[in-house]
Design a binder for these strands. Structure first.
Lengths: 260, 260
DNA sequence: TGCCTCAACTGGCTTGAGCCAGTTGCTTAT
DNA sequence: ATAAGCAACTGGCTCAAGCCAGTTGAGGCA
């Protein structure tokens, strides 16, 4: 392990110095998860700075995802969350036996109650990104779009938007809220002759957009994982795209795959 | 698309109002990538607030990863970066023909010059996380640890740390900086009878730690993707673990896998 | 022509003051 | 015993002022 030794202790601004000390207390375990930080006014007094400077120090930790501030109560060391892991096996036929969707199964495994909420179902014009992957037009209402939010207990964890070419979805009943198939959307698609042979998933991480932060209640200092999933049938044709946007503090991914 | 319509326009603090307007200008394309924001002093005058309030507005955008501030020059709308995508096929034998590592190949594809730098090679005591996956002791120096940084042109993009059980690495020459094999580390391991049959990758996203931000020059408002990779041989035995920590603004992942 | 200097601009950081808005627990009146 | 109310705490946000430290370009000097 190398240390590039950037600013050294000299000329380190007070706010950063305070942040460093608090961070070290957190990393070393001196301040355990859930522990309350000194109030901004106390920190300021303790270090002989203005309140704003102490406040700035706490903010640095908030932005780093280490601390969560609660208005009127105090600032607390963030507790590690139990992770909901989305695996590449979630589309495996083996899950049909359980009768539960992989997300709900994973929630149950973590001792949480999973549920999902339908935000909207409509025939829509896809973004270029989606249109390219499905080989449909990005100028017309060429896809059926279904948007859901998944919850684990009282936390919104994922926003999931599924796109299916209208030519495939037409007349299947997928415009209804209730999916008319025991095995869900993919059951319907399979009946249409689209058997999932491969999946292709493009993964990015970024800070949430404003509306995402609101919908999923993403705390400050927490990024989202953005997965663009494409289902490909045995003929190599893409027939479904889904975008998963997941709170990174409550979820992760798992791929267990053969080397080809 | 639903909008929960949280605070409305009433009582929205000035800093957030300014941030909202700037954000909208960015999202709509009125301010293109690379465009310069008004200076903090100008913004303050324009909105009739104190400079600190305008400054706070800009900071919100910086934390959201939309804007980058340059001391003495100004604040600019961040330019989208070309992504280096790490694919699950990077361990595929097909790459041996090219004579290039997948990372360097991907850099070349993006018109960049890739290189890597060895930070350190040592016999070390693994973390519990790594020890569990390799089924070795976390109390003794049971692994060989190699740490690298990968660059694309002049940007550090990934920090990569590889762990190999000492029982396997001993006497293979992997303690030297120069890997004694045409096909790299995995060539050496294959000669030892460890043929990669499957890989297992656990993926998280988070804000960078302080040392990571320094080493990889991660700008504020940019998360990292943290991948814990495990190589498994034909007997189902794990024989190598690698942690990839990647700047999320310059890199992503790609999995193209069969449904099993 | 070429270099240097310096003024004017940029963001970085701090101060100390004030008011607002949640939270909590104690006190008081019913 | 209960409920209302209040005081004392917490963070959220703003103000106006000041100094420091990079950057840039114009002007002047050699």
């Amino acid at each position: 392990m190398v240390d590039h030794e950037e600013p050294g202790n000299v000329r380190r601004p007070p706010s950063k110095r305070i942040a460093d000390e608090l961070r070290q207390a957190i990393d070393s375990g001196d301040m355990a998860p859930g522990a309350k930080l000194p109030s901004e006014r106390d920190l300021a007094a303790q270090y002989g700075t203005a309140r704003n400077t102490a406040r700035e120090a706490v903010r640095i930790l908030i932005d780093a995802g280490l601390v969560i501030a609660e208005h009127g109560r105090g600032a607390y060391v963030r507790r590690p969350q139990t992770l909901i892991r989305l695996g590449n096996d979630r589309y495996s036929p083996k899950y049909r036996a359980t009768g539960l969707s992989p997300f709900l199964l994973e929630c149950a495994k973590q001792g949480k109650t999973g549920r999902f909420e339908v935000l909207g179902i409509e025939r829509a014009t896809p973004t270029i990104e989606v249109a390219n992957r499905l080989d449909v037009s990005d100028k017309t209402k060429s896809v059926l779009q279904r948007e859901n939010i998944f919850w684990a207990d009282d936390d919104p964890v994922q926003r999931v938007t599924t796109y299916i070419p209208w030519a495939i979805a037409k007349g299947t009943g997928l415009l209804q809220e209730e999916v008319p198939h025991q095995y869900g959307i993919h059951g319907v698609l399979e009946d249409q002759g689209h058997v999932m042979a491969r999946i292709r998933e493009e993964i990015n991480a970024r800070m949430p957009r404003a509306d995402e932060a609101r919908h999923m209640r993403v705390p400050p200092g927490v990024p989202v994982i953005d997965v663009l999933h494409t289902s490909v049938d045995e003929q190599g044709k893409a027939y479904e795209v889904t975008r998963f946007v997941m709170r990174a503090d409550m979820s992760g991914l798992l791929y267990d795959v053969p080397v080809e």
